[in-house]
Simulated scan of single mutants.
Amino acid sequence: MAENTKFDSAQYSWADVSVSMGGRIVTGLTSVSYTVKQAKSVLKGRGNKGHKILRGDKEFEGSIKIWQSELQAMIKSAPGKDVLSLNFDLVVAYTPADGGQNTTDILVSCEFTEYKKEMNQGDTNMEIECPIIFLDLKEDQ
């Protein structure tokens, strides 16, 4: 008989997430997301069904949402005060307080593609979404 295998299905909460850039945990970060895509197509030949799935290039993209003060700090330290010229690894660590499984994802060689500052009546602070592209994702480090 097969042995029972147990999977840790505990979920992470936002309080369990730490994100660091440039060797510093970013406290003014309110959102992080990242996606890995791969171009795929079906190889067609004789008949009306595909024969194989072909794989192409991978793409890596995402975004972070940060406080305006965090963006200003990055602009100050960026070469030529151009935050779009920064290149950095983004380290996303999931560390549950209840002692569950820790995992860390490293987004390698990130760069911002754009940012937009916006304030609206009634806002108490400015959050800025910064889309990113990166070269690789090292998962579960």
Rank of each mutant, 00 (worst) to 15 (best):
F7P: 00
D123A: 03
T104N: 04
L86Y: 08
F7N: 12
M21A: 12
E70Q: 05
Y94E: 03
M126R: 01
Y115I: 01
V32F: 11
Y34G: 02
T5E: 05
F112V: 06
P96C: 12
K65R: 07
P131E: 05
T35D: 15
T113G: 11
A78S: 09
Q72L: 11
G45C: 03
W14D: 11
D105C: 03
G62F: 06
L29V: 06
I106Q: 10
Q38K: 03
F112A: 09
G23M: 04
G80K: 03
T35L: 15
K6E: 03
D140Y: 12
F7K: 08
K116I: 07
S85A: 04
M119P: 05
S13R: 09
T35W: 13
I53K: 09
T113K: 04
N125G: 14
K58Q: 06
M119Q: 10
P79K: 05
D123W: 00
V26S: 06
T124M: 13
R46Y: 15
S85Y: 03
N102S: 06
N48E: 11
K81D: 00
S13T: 13
K37V: 12
L137K: 07
M21R: 08
K81M: 02
I75Y: 00
V42N: 15
D105G: 00
Q121V: 15
L137R: 14
A93Y: 07
E139Q: 09
F134A: 02
R46K: 10
